[in-house]
Design a binder for these strands. Structure first.
Length: 113
DNA sequence: CTGATGACGGCGC
DNA sequence: TGCGCCGCCATCA
């Protein structure tokens, strides 16, 4: 029908971000792919930077290597780290512990053990 | 229009 | 693991 998901890239990306469950993290590239925009990781970052929705779980979005995208020590960095820990996501040196790739396509989506 | 910048990602060393 | 280089995309000077 005439209700294709995500009429605009921004909407699709925001939806993908909101789809990340609490206590889990996802990479920018993963969000972009889930939004139907493979390779648009940078667009995801731009959307987040412009986002004003306080209900958006922006803190669950990290880089593909599990690191927080903000510069270490910056306000954004601290806030994201604080929120992640508050949700039960352990950080090590500002880096989310990534899982050993066991062949699951969900490797980019990590859940705390 | 060209060049630089950025909440990125992948690959090579 | 850390660092550098390059590719990709959108916005700004």
């Amino acid at each position: 029908m005439g209700t294709p998901p995500g009429h605009s890239p921004e909407t699709a990306i925001l939806e993908a971000i909101r789809a990340v469950p609490r206590g889990q993290v996802a990479g920018y590239g993963v969000i972009a792919r889930r939004a139907g925009l493979p390779g648009r990781a940078r667009l995801v970052a731009r959307i987040l930077a412009a986002n004003e929705d306080p209900g958006l779980p922006w803190h669950r979005i990290v880089r593909s290597d599990g690191r927080i995208a903000f510069p270490p020590g910056s306000p954004g960095y601290r806030e994201q780290a604080r929120r992640l820990v508050a949700e039960g996501v352990p950080l090590q040196g500002g880096r989310v512990r990534m899982p050993a790739d066991d062949g699951s396509l969900d490797a980019a989506i990590w859940s705390p053990r």
